[in-house]
């Protein structure tokens, strides 16, 4: 009891003015703005896929890109919310990516059904996963570093969502860069690895976001 009193006194004496953390929406907006800048800069350097304008006339491609962009937004907001001990009392925002991933699966299913006759598979395979992962490194680093400044009480979940955000940014970039029409290839080498990335994030979260 005496120890508690001493601790309270010492903490109170240490009460210097503190700048409150930004709202998760602002935090998320900052990450998304940085991600957009990063994609634009990368596409400016690497160039867009030559048939991109034409692809935007295909409804399932547009739907896929739209839902993927929404996943980027939802995962960034979820990661921002999860950086706060009480999820900033916005629990729905924290679980929002789950709904969008479900919509994404349905969208991809219809895109696969519409791919008849199936577009030929490209010559490459795992290179796409590697490219997305390498592209995602920078967003992953800045997101984790930023989240470490706060105090997550859901470290594993936060780590998983943060990596999914970074990987979605990479997936979005590659879809606009790579000349490829095979939805099977995209499912196998662009989107299925997200499961593994989520697990790696789960593992990393506990180690990187622990405070």
């Amino acid at each position: 009891m005496a120890n508690i009193e001493e601790l309270l006194d010492s903490l109170a004496q240490d009460a210097a003015p503190v700048k409150p953390a930004p709202h998760p929406l602002m935090l998320s907006l900052g990450w998304v703005a940085a991600a957009v800048g990063y994609i634009v800069l990368s596409l400016w350097i690497s160039g867009l896929r030559p048939d991109l304008l034409q692809k935007f006339h295909e409804p399932w491609f547009v739907a896929e890109m739209l839902v993927l962009a929404l996943i980027v937004l939802a995962t960034s907001l979820s990661a921002a919310v999860l950086a706060f001990p009480d999820l900033h009392q916005m629990r729905k925002a924290a679980v929002a990516p789950a709904g969008l991933f479900a919509i994404f699966i349905v969208t991809i299913f219809f895109a696969w059904r519409a791919d008849a006759p199936p577009a030929p598979l490209p010559m490459h395979s795992f290179e796409c996963t590697v490219s997305i992962t390498l592209f995602a490194l920078l967003p992953a680093v800045w997101t984790f570093l930023s989240m470490r400044r706060f105090a997550s009480t859901h470290c594993r979940w936060a780590g998983s969502v943060a990596l999914l955000f970074a990987f979605s940014v990479g997936a979005l970039w590659l879809r606009m860069y790579e000349l490829n029409d095979s939805i099977l290839h995209v499912i196998e080498w662009h989107y299925l690895p997200m499961l593994g990335i989520g697990l790696i994030g789960w593992w990393m979260g506990k180690r990187v976001l622990k405070w």
Binding site: L11, P20, D86
Partner: peptide
């Protein structure tokens, strides 16, 4: 109490304190 002290910047005074 030490954790509350360390994490106090994650509270903005705009939402209920107890859940935090």
């Amino acid at each position: 109490l030490i954790s509350i002290h360390k994490a106090r910047h994650t509270y903005d005074g705009e939402r209920p304190y107890k859940p935090w």
